[in-house]
Amino acid sequence: MNELVHGALYGTLIATAILSTIAMGIWFERKFAGRMQQRLGPTIVGPAGLLQPFADIIKLLQKEDIVPRDADRGLFDLAPILAVVCSLGVAAVIPFSPSIIASDLDVGVLWVLGIGGLMVIPTFAAGWGSNNKFALLGAMRAIAQSVSYGVPLVLAVLVPVVLSGSLSISGIVAWQAQHHWFAVWPIVPGLPAFVIFFLAMLAESNRIPFDIPEAESELVAGITTEYTGAKFTLFYMAEYVHTLVGSALGAALFFGGWDGPFAPGLHWMVLKTLTLFVLIYWVRWSLLRFRADQLMRLCWTWLTPIGVALLLVSAAWVTFGGTN
């Protein structure tokens, strides 16, 4: 029972923290994107445009809610909620400090992979339920994409699991705190595995260069084509939550999570997470979109074999090389 209270308390706290971070994240992204294009980004609404995300959300919540006549009402309404739930759910097992964790699951990695994999269902429900050809095409692409990136994602995540011998994320972080960060040592399975994980996570959170289901220049707005106001807000938020939680996961699995000198664990975790978050937006505003077939070729012919090799290397490392 005590554990339940602990989980509920920290879960609420973490969810609130994430949701307020993404408001700032939206602002940051727009400013950052602006600077990268030698623009200013939002400046007028609030000091330095800081209130822009709030204006957006207030506006979006006031908009009329349109449901297309032939849409599948249930799926159409369910999809945005599911998207937020799935993207926030991953955060439940990520340790933000030795004590700040909503639920220290024994099989945290499986939970992360499973819930993360569920993201395809709201995407599909939105695309299919909208009864819109662009949304449907987006959904089809999302599914094809998820089949491709899933395998390398699992393989990359298994590398720290094998190296640390634990399926719990807090266990993995604790192991790294005692030994080395996996992105640093052993560098051969660690760093490439992080790169694969990063690419697969970009694909999972539909970020450029893998935002194929949303491809605005081809599919109007992809799966969100028919969504207005509040429901679109949920999708919009889910996207950012997913990116943020993915960054936190990367920080925990490969960069030692809350481990770091001088400062308390939470500071280090937040710093690492935000660094990865910025990296994702840097990539987003610099690169072009892959075609669906290019992504699939990349995943199946490059990332999957490399992932398998890395897994073998890490198994050999554990067997022959010792643990440090």
């Binding site: 600077r35 990268m36 840097w282």
Partner: peptide
């Protein structure tokens, strides 16, 4: 090309913006 693109955008980010606040 990816490296070049990333470098270009990062260099731009620290340049003076050309925007004139209308």
């Amino acid at each position: 090309d990816t490296a070049k693109a990333l470098r270009t955008t990062m260099v731009n980010a620290f340049r003076e913006p050309v925007t004139q606040e209308f």
